[in-house]
């Protein structure tokens, strides 16, 4: 059979795998919902949780679709479709594909892949990120048991421990938002040159402030939502506060980038 990166059979194979992953999500959703009824949890509240989760997911998921579009130009559509529906990301898949092709004396985007190159790229992508998928079954139970026994011994400390993990993660990402602020004082003549994948990219000195301003807008929107939620008529806002701050932050990025970029 003549190979092409967009061969219909590849769509069928990727589609089957995506269907299995979807089935796993549905399975766990049903299982958790059943358990919630046994525990006598407020079903109305849970329905709201589901609505919030769905709305919140839309914008990040559209960003993933954009990554699929970008990668499909060199790798065809089925491979990025599958890869970004399971663990992976645009930057990871690009690195993996580049490493696989470089080892064959090729480079990403230098022409259409043949079947052998396609298989090599696919195997490198699949295996190199396949750790968590089997490590969770291996050590997940032990880690969870550890948390559980901590909670049994000292419930208050266990809550602080969980909160510390969450805060730790958020602090790291807040720090990341500021990582290019140093362009303000490292810039020469108001311009910073960054070498990325062999290309020289130029940024303005103030470009590092873009993510900071976007974050500030999103934080401000959240504060306003938090205040409005206290009004009895505005209680419904609590379901939408996070998605609203996300989308308004993203929208603000457009004028802010025009201004500081």
């Amino acid at each position: 059979m003549e190979f092409s990166v967009n061969h219909p059979i590849l769509f069928v194979l990727a589609g089957l795998l995506v269907a299995v992953v979807l089935a796993q999500s549905v399975f766990f959703l049903v299982k958790a919902l059943r358990r919630s009824k046994e525990l006598g949890m407020d079903q109305k509240k849970l329905r709201k949780t589901m609505v919030t989760a769905a709305i919140f997911t839309v914008a990040p998921a559209v960003a993933i679709v954009i990554s699929v579009m970008v990668l499909s130009k060199t790798l065809g559509l089925p491979m990025p479709w599958l890869r970004l529906s399971v663990v992976g990301s645009m930057s990871y898949e690009t690195v993996a594909a580049t490493n696989a092709l470089n080892a064959m004396g090729q480079s990403l985007g230098s022409g259409d892949l043949n079947a052998q190159q396609y298989v090599n790229v696919l195997i490198v992508m699949t295996i190199s990120i396949m750790l968590g998928i089997w490590l969770v079954p291996l050590i997940g139970k032990k880690l969870q048991k550890g948390m559980k026994s901590l909670a049994n011994r000292d419930a208050k400390w266990a809550d602080i421990f969980s909160n510390a993990l969450f805060i730790g993660m958020i602090a790291a990402f807040l720090g990341f938002v500021f990582c290019d602020v140093s362009r303000l004082w490292t810039a020469e003549n108001g311009i910073v040159e960054v070498i990325k994948e062999g290309e020289i990219l130029t940024y303005s000195a103030t470009s590092g402030l873009i993510p900071v301003c976007v974050m500030a807008v999103s934080a401000l929107v959240m504060v306003i939502c938090g205040l409005l939620m206290k009004l009895p008529k505005m209680k419904w806002l609590s379901e939408y506060a996070l998605p609203i701050s996300l989308v308004l932050g993203m929208a603000a990025a457009i004028p802010i980038t025009g201004w500081l970029g």
């Binding site: 807008v217 959240m222 932050g249």
Partner: peptide
């Protein structure tokens, strides 16, 4: 491009 700052602000 600014999805992470917009997310972690809120």
């Amino acid at each position: 491009d600014q999805i992470l700052p917009a997310l972690f602000g809120g």
